[in-house]
Every structure is written in structure tokens, then in C-alpha cells.
Amino acid sequence: MTETPADPIFSELRPHLVRLAYRMLGSVADAEDIVQEAWLRWLASDHASVRAPMAFLRTIVTRLCLNELKSARRQRETYVGPWLPEPIFDPQDDDAADDVTLPLMMALERLSPLERAAFLLHDVFGMDFEEVASAIGREAAACRKLASRARAHIVDARPRFAIGKEQGLKFAAAFFTASRTGDMAALRAMLSEEVVAYADGGGKVPASRQPLIGLDAVMRRHEQMARLFLVQPSQLIRYALIDGLPGFLTIEGGDVVQTTALQIEQEKVVAIYCTRNPDKLRHIASATAH
């Protein structure tokens, strides 16, 4: 197929569009599908009449995501156990263009689709409210209200105590070592009294059906797992920033790919996010195979 002048434009904007779709949907696969559909619509459009390709494509992606969210919400109502967004990590973590971390991604799930869109487009992607209004088909004043309501719902999910990448990954390495070698005293010292642990198995692999709340509950589970690690050690793939949080990728039980992300505040782990659902880890499993 002969390349057209429109191809380089879309190729340049594609990473931004994928990031927008992922933030909207919490799914890498769905984000890729949305952007592919946007590409097909871009090919069919009259490029000569498009004065601002970025705004044009953002609008397409946003509206496709809003349609997808309606069906995704129905699916999540019947989801088995805690739902976590599909984890993403990137060797170029320092190039991340926003501060939407995993806790904030979870908080976005509490918003209506329009609130989520208004908040992300304005607060994260820097669009003015006139642009947001055009993208989601509402008046600018209504978009201001949507974004304001969104901020009120997610205020506690924004990072309050930022931790540097290097320090965070060192903490993740210490957590991995303590949890996998059975050093429960060292592990306990890293955890907040109010720590919460989430495990997303999606009903496909073993995982807690409810979050573990509090230090004692989390420690009991890690004591159980430490005995299992003696029989079948956890295989470390790499340390990484996972949706903005320090953590690590492992293979558990011989064949289960898992990501573990740690929310750290004031040198204590306040939340642990383990994603084990194989449907959410295909992109990571394929990356680790190369």
C-alpha cells in the first residue's frame, strides 16, 4: 500500500492516542483496538479539511472510548474479585507524560464516563474546556462541572508523597527479597498498619476474592506464601515502574506471570497491587519472551 501524507501524521500522534485510550479504559488491548479504529476513520476522512489533526483524532478516540466504557462497565459488574487496570511498564519510564498512577486509575473507575473523559482531557492531557466540549459533545460549562465533580471523587487518589524512581525500585527490591526469603520481620517493617493488598486473578488463577485490609491480614498471607516459595521459588523477571508505581514482574508457580506494584508513602507500603489475570498480562508475557 502506498504511503499517504496522512500516515506520518497519525504515526506521530499514535503513542499519545494510545495513552489517552488506555487512561480512559484501563486496558491495553482495548486501547490498541480503539486506536486502530481511529486509524481507519482517519483514512476515510477528508484530510484537507482537518486543520488540527490532534484535536480531530482526540475527539474520535474519546468518543469511541465513551462507547466502549458503557459495555466495559457491565462486564466489570460481574468481574470475579478485585478489578485492577491492565498493568503497563516501559523501559523509558522517565519519559512518562503524566502522573496517572495505578491508584488514580482505580479511582477513575468510580467516575461516570463523561466525568472520566472531562477530567483526563483537561487535567491530564491539558486540553482547554472548549476543546473538551467539542470532544465529548457537551457545553464547556458542563465540562467544567464534570471535571470538578471528578476531582472531588478522586482527591485521595493523587500521589501525596512522591518517591523517586531509583528510591522506589530499591524499595521494591527489598520488598521482593523479604517476601520471597521469608524475612517476615523485614517485611513487617516496610508495611503501614493500614496497608491494603489487592490481587486480581479475574477468576482465572488463584487470587484473593476480597482485598486484604490491615497489617495482620497482609502479614498472614505473606507468611503462607513464604512457605510456598520454599517449594517453588518466585522467578524475578525485572524491577520496573508499573503504572507509575515501583514494583516487579515475576513468574509464580512455574507459569503464572504476575506484576506487583507498591504504593509507598512516607517510607511505608500503604497498598500492594498484584495482577495475575492472564488476560491482562498477555502484552507483558510476550515482552518478557523476547
Results as ranks from 00 to 15, higher is better:
T4N: 06
A6P: 00
P15H: 13
P15V: 15
R19F: 08
R23M: 09
G26R: 01
D30S: 07
I34Q: 13
V35E: 13
A44P: 13
A48Y: 12
R51L: 15
M54K: 03
F56M: 11
R58V: 06
R63P: 08
L66Y: 01
N67Q: 13
L69I: 03
R73C: 00
P91N: 08
D93I: 05
D95A: 14
A96N: 11
P103R: 11
F119N: 01
L121C: 08
D123T: 01
G126A: 10
E130R: 14
E130F: 07
E131S: 09
A150K: 01
R158H: 14
R160H: 12
L169A: 06
A173L: 03
T177S: 12
T181S: 13
M184P: 00
M184D: 09
A186R: 15
A186L: 10
V195Q: 05
V205H: 07
Q210D: 09
I213T: 15
V218P: 13
R220A: 12
Q224P: 00
Q224N: 12
L228I: 06
Q232G: 01
L236P: 06
Y239V: 03
L249N: 03
G254A: 01
K268L: 03
N277A: 15
K280W: 11
L281H: 13
S286H: 13
A289I: 05
A289V: 04
